[in-house]
């Protein structure tokens, strides 16, 4: 418990550093935010007036302090483009990204665990070569192409699933799951090879251990040996990879979000960068930083659960 508390406390300086660095970097961007708000033809006097109203002429650290205080109170400001509250926009998009990430990662794990174990157990055999070949084949297929193929086959030709769009879980749970199947499969397939290969390597190493030899010599069936004895000690690397993938997926599923028209966090961030919607960018980067830290905390806790020696 104390360890968890320390880890949680560790999140605070990390998040603060990220927000400060982001704030400073956004300030270095060329162009004036007042020109965005007032239009390029606004007279200088009006620009000056707005700059003063927004305290843009104050030292950057003072402005950061003001932003931070407001952010701690839940006020992240409003989008310059749509007028939407930044916190509201982030909340809506985060739910979509989170749901997509869970489904995609769940699917990737469903594929990776059995295939990784099988490939490790049968290392060098035809089944291992087949799985490895399939993994390389999928990795080499760009996710854009993969997504389009899935869409054409399952939405356009077979009409089993919707081609694009997102349905909120609260509005229609079944419709929501259906709307995310194709994007989750596209991402899950892209994530599967890395997980499968990592698990395969660890399984191969674990199967060389003495305790596995002992289990086998006791006459335990292969399935029992693999799932009860070999899987748990082989999971540390895959958990590390999952931790990185989860955080990456929350904000990095841009291509899939764009193709399947999902209003996720990645799309919001990129569109905000293009439109120079700086408060959205600042808020999104802060949220992503927190997600990374939380995901890493989760990974650390999982390490301890998998291998009790780590707790000591």
């Amino acid at each position: 418990m104390r360890r968890v508390a320390w880890k949680a406390l560790y999140m605070i300086p990390v998040a603060l550093t990220v927000t400060l660095v982001t704030y400073l970097l956004l300030n270095l961007l060329p162009g004036d935010v007042t020109a965005l708000m007032l239009g390029d033809e606004a007279p200088k006097a009006a620009i000056e007036q707005t700059r003063q109203a927004l305290h843009l002429d104050d030292p950057v650290l003072l402005r950061y302090g003001r932003w931070l205080l407001a952010a701690l109170g839940g006020d992240l400001g409003r989008s310059y483009i749509t007028g939407q509250q930044v916190a509201e926009a982030l909340g809506e998009r985060f739910m979509v990204s989170c749901q997509l990430m869970l489904m995609a990662q769940g699917l990737a794990l469903l594929l990776a665990v059995p295939t990784g174990i099988l490939a490790g157990y049968r290392a060098g055999r035809p089944i291992d070569r087949l799985l490895t070949g399939a993994a390389f084949g999928i990795v080499s297929l760009p996710i854009f192409v993969q997504s389009m193929l899935l869409m054409i086959v399952f939405a356009v030709v077979l009409r089993w699933l919707p081609s694009t769009g997102y349905v909120e879980f609260g509005d229609d749970p079944w419709g929501s799951l259906r709307s995310l199947v194709l994007p989750a499969v596209a991402i899950g397939l892209a994530e599967w090879p890395a997980l499968m290969r990592v698990l395969r390597s660890d399984i191969i190493a674990t199967l060389q251990e003495d305790f596995i030899l002992l289990a086998r010599s006791k006459g335990l069936p292969p399935g029992h040996v693999l799932f009860r004895h070999a899987l748990r000690p082989s999971c540390l690397s895959i958990v590390t990879v999952i931790g990185l993938q989860i955080a990456g997926l929350i904000n990095g599923a841009l291509i899939v979000e764009t193709i399947f028209a999902l209003p996720g966090l990645g799309r919001l961030l990129v569109e905000a960068v293009h439109a120079r919607d700086l408060l959205i960018v600042q808020g999104a980067v802060t949220l992503i930083a927190v997600i990374y830290v939380v995901a890493n905390l989760g990974v650390d806790l999982l390490y301890a659960a998998i291998d009790p020696r780590i707790r000591r």
Partner: peptide, 18 residues
């Protein structure tokens, strides 16, 4: 009004009846 930024995906959505 459904925002589908990708043009090919928009055409696919029409073909799929979405």
């Amino acid at each position: 009004f459904k925002q589908i930024p990708n043009l090919q995906a928009r055409l696919n959505a029409l073909k799929a009846g979405d």
